[in-house]
């Protein structure tokens, strides 16, 4: 099956390894992955901040860049949610159709490929904290992160509490309201201390930037991984990142 990878701008710049793992995992599952070269950003920050015209033009551009592909797959939950949830209203023509063709990785694996992630046979030793991004709320499959990791032998995946609570990222919110954003971040850092993992798994590059920056500031040098990285490493598709010990 031919799929187009939608890397997303943040993943491209800040977490390229997550995109690489996504490609390796998709190939492992029998997909032929292509990277449409013109892609940039889905327009999520512009939509969220009220720049509808800008968001619409970027949305239109997305549909042009990914024309001809039946499946567009992205490792980012919030970008998938933007396309799925907001494009139909942004683009009266083609928004709905493009939204239907766009998949968050975890949902694509189960819904389109029909693969049960628990049967993949990956091995990855250690305890990780799993942060589910809020934007999964907008996707029909919900947060797929734990599902993707469900069959990895040796892995202990602990959801990062408090249940369903935002980490405080929220795009420009993090910059405009550092005190409130920081208070929410503190809750997550406290939860992280309790879980005491060797890594954090988060399928959203934005939340990861915010949480990793918070960990660094708090003196907790934890590696941040995408679930695809855990699977790709666990399946021997890419070398395991050198493990750093918490604290």
């Amino acid at each position: 099956m031919k799929v187009a990878l939608f890397v997303t701008c943040l993943t491209d710049q800040f977490a390229p390894r997550a995109a690489e793992a996504t490609v390796r995992l998709l190939r492992h599952l029998g997909c032929e992955v292509e990277l449409p070269r013109g892609q940039t950003c889905c327009g999520q920050p512009h939509y969220n901040n009220g720049y509808e015209g800008e968001a619409r033009r970027l949305a239109k551009r997305m549909t042009r860049v990914f024309r001809g592909y039946d499946h567009v797959v992205t490792p980012s939950g919030s970008c998938a949610a933007t396309v799925r949830h907001r494009y139909p209203e942004l683009l009266t023509e083609g928004g709905e159709a493009f939204a239907r063709r766009t998949w968050e990785l975890g949902a694509f694996v189960t819904e389109v490929l029909g693969v049960d992630p628990s049967q993949l046979g990956a091995v990855w030793e250690g305890r990780v904290a799993v942060h589910g991004s809020c934007h999964y709320r907008d996707l029909p499959q919900g947060d797929t992160t734990l599902g993707l990791l469900s069959g990895v032998s040796g892995l202990e995946a602990v959801p990062l509490g408090p249940r369903g609570q935002c980490c405080g990222f929220g795009g420009t919110f993090a910059v405009k309201y550092p005190a409130i954003s920081g208070a929410l971040l503190s809750d997550k850092l406290a939860a992280l201390r309790e879980v005491d993992p060797i890594a954090v798994v988060c399928n959203d590059a934005g939340c990861s930037l915010h949480l990793a920056g918070g960990c660094h500031r708090a003196g907790m040098p934890l590696p941040f991984l995408h679930a695809a990285e855990v699977l790709a490493e666990g399946l021997g598709l890419m070398p395991r990142r050198p493990r750093r010990v918490a604290r």
Binding site: T11, P16, G214
Partner: peptide, 21 residues
């Protein structure tokens, strides 16, 4: 960017972006 670094650091971007890889 000051608001960001007021409460957390910013992880630097990768040396080579994905499209270069």
């Amino acid at each position: 960017g000051r608001g960001w670094t007021e409460v957390r650091s910013l992880p630097a971007p990768a040396a080579t972006p994905f499209r270069a890889r």
